[in-house]
Amino acid sequence: MNHGPLLFLGVLCCVVASWLGLVVGPHFQFGNQDLVLIEETGASYPSARDGLALQGAEIYRANGCNYCHTQQVRGASEGADIARGWGKRRTVARDYLRDRPVMLGNHRFGPDLANLGARQYTTNDLYLKLYNARLLHPRSVMPRYPYLFEERPLRPGAAPSSDALQFPEGSAAPANVEVIPKADALALVAYLQSLKSDAVFFEVFPPPQPAAATNGLSGVDTNAPALGDQTNAAPAAGAGATSTP
């Protein structure tokens, strides 16, 4: 250990080995994964985002949303993510093929967003959360993003424009102003609504349903319709799993 070059080579080998094993090897192993063709729709998954949603991804990145929100759903055996309704299945590598950068996130100070677009939020709800999350959830720690909105003074008695945010009954809506989302907010919400990791393909088929596994063929006396039902039911279940609910 008195020789600088040996020390250097040893450490270099250690770093390079880990780099090859953790980054380069996996790149050559699954860096060329294909998009999935969804047969029902003929579309490929993950689907390409439109221009507005791509701009929204830039807003998401620039404001560091990924420091509080993850975009990954753990399997049912590893956490309550699916039970919480954050997704119907776990997320896998193929879900992120089009993301650049991939913003998986490491902290859940806010809820997971991997399937936000598939969840029941109206556009107005999302705007309200961005404008002031505490209007919907008192004591929420989500920051306000007032700079994504324009507050226009409203003449007394005048109705707000159709683009303006609709505040829920009883919330502390700002008085005498109408709140209009700026272009950044439009893009960000378009991106959020494009977040869906719900297509089903090879790696992520759900475990077989217990109901489908039972069969009526326990004895010779089984009547014919039971057999017929089964033949019909099985492909239907497969097709149902492949379609996007």
Binding site: P26, Q29, F30, Q33, G75, S77, E78, R90, V92, A93, F202, E203, V204, F205, P206, P207, P208, A234, A237, G238, A241
Partner: peptide, 18 residues
Amino acid sequence: PLVFNRGERMADVEARVP
């Protein structure tokens, strides 16, 4: 690279595919 669940192998993944 297609096995994601802890403790599973490729056969388990294939078994789930209809």
